[in-house]
Structure formats: structure tokens, C-alpha cells
Amino acid sequence: MLNSFGLLGMFLIIAILVTAAFVLIPIALRLVGLGARRNPNTDKYTIYECGMVSVGKTHIQFNFRYYFFAVLFVAFDVLAIFLFPWALWMGNAGVFELGAAVLLVVIVLIGYLYAWKKGVMQWK
């Protein structure tokens, strides 16, 4: 088991190196004189905004409407993680285990239905 995680760790290192190499290839090509020449221009390095001069800052606070989805996501993701080991052993389990899982889901679903009722999932 540890063996396979070790292999995965080594593969992660190889994958990082390969991905970094992809980004570095054009730089290497430019060093040997094959890539595109740098042709600096002030307009080229401005931020694209449909041809207009960019107005104001980008990183401002604004209501992006996803906060409540994130809260619901946390509840359901934890639920899903709990359901994985349950599902694995369900093959030799009975009605009681199924009922316990249904109870767990229903507890989370009460919050979900409350959120639905409150109109969290509606864009207003």
C-alpha cells in the first residue's frame, strides 16, 4: 500500500517537471533563436477590455452570489466523504445500516430544504 503511494509521489514529481518543461519550451526556443522575437509595445502589455482604456481597479469587493452555495457545498461534501466507507461495507449489511445512512442524509437535507425555502438558490 505504501509502495503505491510512493510511486504516486514520484509520478507527481515527474508530472510537475514535465508540466514546467512545457511552459519553458518557448523560452528555450527563443534562446536558440527559433522562437518569436520580443517586440515590446505599451499597448500590447495593457489589459484587454474591448479596446477601451481600463477603468478602475480589478480586485474590488463585489457580491458574487456564491457564498451560500459554498456553505451548502461544505455540508454535502462532508456527507459524501462519510458515505464512501458506508457504501463499501453495504454489501454485507442490512436494513439497519441503510436506515442509519438515510437518517444522516435526512439531517443534512433539512438544512438543504431550509436553504431552498429561503430562496438561497434563486438569483434575485
Binding site: 510537475i16 512545457f22 511552459v23 518557448p26 523560452i27 527559433l34 522562437g35 518569436a36 502589455y45 489589459i47
Partner: peptide, 25 residues
């Protein structure tokens, strides 16, 4: 591969470069 790599001067250089790497990993 032969195109010029343009990074806007207001952009965060580190995040701008790391983005594609982390997407592909």
C-alpha cells in the same frame, strides 16, 4: 510554440505563470 508570450504589466507574474501549470497537473 513559436508565438510570443505576452504578460500584461499589471498582472501578477507569479500567479499568471503558475496558473497553466496547476491546471494541467
Amino acid at each position: 510554440l513559436l508565438k510570443e508570450d505576452v504578460v500584461p504589466d499589471r498582472a501578477d507574474k507569479v500567479l499568471h505563470t503558475l496558473g497553466p501549470v496547476i491546471v494541467f497537473l
